[in-house]
Nucleic acid binder design. Structure first.
Lengths: 145, 145
DNA sequence: TATTGTTATACTCTATAACTATA
DNA sequence: TATAGTTATAGAGTATAACAATA
């Protein structure tokens, strides 16, 4: 089968997969009163390194740095993270998840029910093949420009 | 290898894949001055059936129906779609993509460069395996709540 | 001079609730 | 009564531009 046909067959499947995954993630986040952006920030802070400059967080969730101020304000007010001045460079403020924030992140991850069930239902060879394909795709998909 | 370990290995890969895919899609949409929501509406209208009630569109992109009014206003003002009253039920308005809208949708799809390249670089067996796994996952992932 | 975070501004998305016109 | 679309409202995300503090 030609490359073009393979891609054409995969494209709509990938689109549906991404849409369904996001719905599941958003549902888990909203169940705890978090917006999509807030959940992304929190989960970013709960994968090592657990303290990150606000600037770095903006880069990771792909938004302008000025937005992080307000997002951090709201999450700090609810006790899920705190600001810490970096002693080495006093311009920089790191965001750090509080114990409450860490616990919430764990809950959100656990409550992606459909994603977890779908992945758990794969056979071992299917899971292995899926992991291999994703690992093959990511370098190209995560290329910068 | 146990199911739990398979899932734990897959989860971060899937998260990165979804994030990278979305970045690519959003970049293509923003390149034409469309927001993510506007692009989703437009692409929904360019997969048959090409005319859909505003209510149906809200369901498909998973937002409240009241939002579609404003989104449709902005896209109609830019000439990418138009409203059509359904003669069979005069409460209903269908959204229909204009030729300009159809052309733009094609361009956005074509400009998901990293996604297209990543998929095109798969070998035939990899593409087949990927399609099979996605087809296995979707019924569970798309289960309603 | 350059960078980090903040603030102000304008626009968009979002849900909720009240409204209209149809059914 | 019930449904489709609209409007008004409030809260949140977003980019841009200007600013203070620090490097």
């Amino acid at each position: 089968m030609s490359r073009v046909t393979d891609t054409d067959r995969l494209t709509p499947l990938v689109g549906r997969f991404v849409t369904a995954y996001l719905q599941d993630f958003l549902q888990a986040a909203e169940g705890h009163g978090l917006t999509l952006t807030q959940a992304k920030v929190l989960l970013t802070l709960t994968e090592p390194p657990s303290a990150l400059p606000m600037r770095e967080i903006a880069d990771r969730i792909a938004c302008d740095a000025s937005n992080i101020t307000g997002v951090a304000d709201r999450m700090e007010a609810r006790g899920f993270l705190r600001r810490e001045v970096n002693p080495a460079d006093r311009r920089v403020k790191n965001l750090v998840a509080t114990p409450e924030g860490l616990a919430l992140a764990g809950r959100i991850r656990a409550e992606q029910h459909r994603t977890r069930k779908a992945l758990a239902d794969l056979t071992e060879p299917e899971a292995t093949a899926f992991a291999e394909v994703l690992t093959r795709l990511l370098p190209t998909l995560e290329t910068n420009p």
